[in-house]
Amino acid sequence: MSPAAPMHADPGLQPERTVLSWGRTMMLFALVGAVFLRWLPHYGFWTVGLTLSCAVVAGAIYLTQRRRYSRQSRGIAAERVEADVPAVLVTTLAVVVLGILGLLAVLA
């Protein structure tokens, strides 16, 4: 069987690097969720919600990686990639909400 044709011919491997960057971000969301678990004895059971939110964001990134890679590869091949505004806004919103809930927990 012959190998599959590459989806793009970019020697800079832009889609690969961007998808890996999302993967690192996904792991950091998982890490933050794990650190939030340490609050469980101090602040009560609701902190599990913070961990679960981090898991949801990390899972969402994981599940969209394949689609992201094919969209960016096709975009590089066509010389046109639409800026991913929703992904940027949702990721920022997730960090802001986690941070505000964390501040509320510490200050309460």
Binding site: D10, R17, T18, S21, W22, Q72, G75, I76, A87
Partner: peptide, 12 residues
């Protein structure tokens, strides 16, 4: 498109 993706990586 390379610049758009580079901008996305910097954001990340």
């Amino acid at each position: 498109p390379r610049f758009t993706l580079a901008n996305e990586r910097t954001f990340l």
